[in-house]
Design a protein around this nucleic acid. Structure first.
Lengths: 148, 148
DNA sequence: CTACATTATATCGTATACGACATATTTAAC
DNA sequence: GTTAAATATGTCGTATACGATATAATGTAG
């Protein structure tokens, strides 16, 4: 009887979840970034936003939302903060006045010189082997692209 | 020159990150759970807390914090909410009055009957194949246990 | 060419998460 | 045995994230 109950509710044990460790690892990653990013006066979400800006220099909010897999309302506040820090400018698209265009400032570009050391700091402690990292990233990218 | 710059800042491209897709997949997972959990009047973090309670029936806050890979202050508010909903009771440990003991109520246990269908709903859309899921979970568990 | 749908953002309310710091017990040191 | 260190929680302030809803601009149907 006790055994039957175990069987019935097996799918609800924490140790049998895939979503839970994904969530927990994501939290662990955010905690790890925080002290490093504090020196740049960036939060993690601000940092990945800046990554897009360093690469593209100029983007629609819509494109940013898609690149970061977030919702527009999450970015609204964040972009105001990055503007306040002087890393970006926020403009209206003259062609289509619904669009917001975000432009990297010189100060924002300069920040990249300080950020360039972060990835090696983050990945240096060998949480996984090189092969495992590649495998892991492949699975993640598949999940991100997947339509679920 | 342009090529040299690309090389120098390659590590800062979003597409070369491992942390970013982990974070993005975790967000995607949370969004997926939300409508299902709404029917149980639970958030995702409340749900994984209940998973521990369904299995253990009675735990220290400290053990809960360790099981969920969170910080104690994150759980304080959450436990108050679960108590308010009647799913748990919060007691002082008489042996060591620093400890808080969380106890599953009958109402909390009954909720498990409604929750038992959630895992199959969540995993049914084949984001990954069965083999990939096992692989993915193995990597996640390794990362969670890792000391970084 | 006007009413209605669509699109891109913004606002608001709720629920995390965390670090920094404070508090209450318990343990340990001398 | 008192004082100091360690442990377990709680409070506070900040920054996400999201759904629901509102608003403004553009597209489109008839």
């Amino acid at each position: 009887m006790e055994n039957n109950e175990n069987l019935k509710f097996e799918s609800l044990y924490l140790k049998n979840q895939v979503c839970f460790p994904t969530y927990a690892v994501a939290n662990k990653i955010l905690r790890r970034y925080q002290p490093l990013l504090k020196e740049l006066d960036l939060t993690y979400t601000q940092y990945i936003t800046m990554m897009v800006m360093w690469e593209k220099r100029k983007v629609n909010e819509k494109d940013l939302v898609e690149a970061l897999y977030l919702k527009a309302n999450t970015l609204t506040e964040l972009l105001k903060k990055l503007k306040k820090k002087g890393y970006i400018d926020i403009e209206k698209d003259k062609e289509d006045k619904r669009n917001i265009v975000i432009v990297l400032t010189d100060k924002g570009l300069a920040l990249r010189e300080k950020a360039v050391n972060i990835p090696s700091c983050i990945y240096q402690d060998h949480w996984l082997s090189d092969e495992e990292f590649i495998l892991f990233k492949g699975l993640l990218d598949k999940m991100l692209k997947g339509n679920w």
